[in-house]
Amino acid sequence: MAQAAGTSDTYDMKGKAEDFRDVIYTVAKEETPFQKLIGTDYEVTATKHQWQTDTLRAPATNAKPEGNETSFTEVAPTVEVSNYCQISDESFMISNTAEAVKKYGRKSEIKRQTVKKAKELVRDMEYSMVGVKQASSAGSAGTPVRQAGSLWTWLSTNANRGATGANGGYNPATNLTVAPTDGTLRNFAEAQIKDVQQKCFNAGAKPTVIMMHSSVKSTFSGFAGIALNRVDQKVSKTGDAQATILGAADVYQGDFGFLTALANPWQSVRDVALLDPEMWEVGFLRGIKQTPLAKTGDAEKRLVNCEWTLVAKNEASSAVIADVQPTP
């Protein structure tokens, strides 16, 4: 079949309208599971945020005679701990022409980049909290960069580590957290969960969430203590309904309670945390905000930043299984 002579077609046409979908499609993980789990409404008022922890003495035989003359024992004081606020920021610059021209998918390039940078900033915070073993730092006049101690630098009371691994924890002499020492990698195993669950129980802790990197989630789903691996379907009119077998585990039942599984793509691959969400929070000295910067030309400059810290209300409430890898 051939085109008829003299036909005007789109190949010769001028002034054709573009077919441009007025939407921007983004593929990227935006969620921050740890922050969503523990909450971000905690306000702090200084660059060094301090709080106190306490515990009860060990139980003992307690029987006294009638008319007993009471003796007094000094009550152990509370323990003061702290973490430093870390400044995180993103910036961008948009020419005034780029802001003025008509665009597809957004009216304002400044607004689009503000939202994008804020999302990237929150992911950076998540990575700083759970993706690295970042010890806290007060900074100094010569190096004025403060760092918030990450999750892994706090956990020390209830721990299961590979050979040669060592706890970090909070150092009351320096008022800083110390990064743990990585040990020998070993396969992630159910016995490790049982061990730290028992340690938590003996310490009076009640973790309800087990958070792990997505790469070890499939190993976790194969453990025998999985509480639910089938969902019953509603009975049909013919009475032939069958159960659906789930390929992933969301709840683990151990000897000392249930743990809800939470996969986190940003956390350290070799570390698993058992968490009591009520005992952790993100504190903000300054919330996420966009600020216009001084103009030096025909463009708009913007800074998106915040000042935050991780508040470990009592690290003994949680636990760590370190130095693990997916089972082959």
Results as ranks from 00 to 15, higher is better:
Thr327Ala: 14
Leu293Phe: 08
Glu69Cys: 05
Arg57Ile: 12
Leu285Cys: 12
Asp89His: 02
Asn96Arg: 09
Thr238Ala: 15
Glu315Trp: 01
Pro172Tyr: 00
Pro292Ile: 00
Lys237Cys: 05
Ala227Ser: 14
Ala312Met: 05
Ser140Asn: 05
Gly247Glu: 06
Pro33Gly: 04
Lys48His: 07
Asn62Ser: 14
Asp22Gly: 07
Asp276Leu: 08
Asp12His: 09
Gln233Glu: 12
Glu300Phe: 05
Gly169Lys: 01
Thr153Leu: 07
Lys111Asn: 11
Pro59His: 02
Val122Lys: 13
Leu151Ser: 09
Gly6Tyr: 00
Thr40Trp: 07
Leu37Lys: 06
Thr291Met: 14
Asp41Phe: 05
Ser318Ile: 02
Gly222Tyr: 05
Val209Gly: 00
Thr244Tyr: 11
Thr78Pro: 02
Glu109Trp: 06
Ser91Phe: 05
Val115Asp: 13
Gly283Cys: 08
Thr70Phe: 07
Pro328Ser: 13
Gln3Arg: 14
Ser140Cys: 07
Glu278Asp: 12
Val269Tyr: 08
Lys107Phe: 03
Pro33Lys: 10
Trp308Lys: 05
Leu303Arg: 14
Ala4Val: 01
Ala203Leu: 07
Val145Leu: 08
Tyr170Arg: 07
Ala189Ser: 12
Phe20Glu: 13
Val269His: 00
Ala249Gln: 09
Ser136Glu: 04
Val130Gly: 09
Phe188Tyr: 12
Thr114Ser: 13
Pro265Lys: 09
Phe188Lys: 03
Ser150Pro: 05
Lys194Gly: 11
Gln50Asp: 10
Cys306Ala: 13
Thr174Phe: 04
Gly247Lys: 04
Val101His: 09
Asp22Leu: 09
Thr181Ile: 08
Val79Glu: 13
Thr70Cys: 10
Lys199Asp: 02
Thr174Gly: 04
Gly165Met: 03
Glu30Phe: 09
Asp250Gly: 15
Asp19Ser: 15
Pro277Arg: 04
Val27Ala: 15
Ala294Gly: 11
Gly247Ala: 11
Asp232Ala: 14
Gln3Leu: 13
Thr219Leu: 06
Ala179Arg: 00
Tyr127Ala: 14
Phe34Leu: 08
Lys289Phe: 10
Ser215Gly: 08
Trp266Gly: 12
Asn68His: 08
Lys237Tyr: 06
Val272His: 01
Thr184Cys: 09
Glu190Ala: 15
Val311His: 00
Phe72Asp: 02
Glu190Lys: 02
Thr53Glu: 04
Lys289Arg: 14
Ala249Leu: 00
Thr97Tyr: 04
Tyr104Val: 10
Met129Thr: 11
Glu31Asp: 14
Ala58Ser: 14
Gln50Gly: 06
Ser91Ile: 00
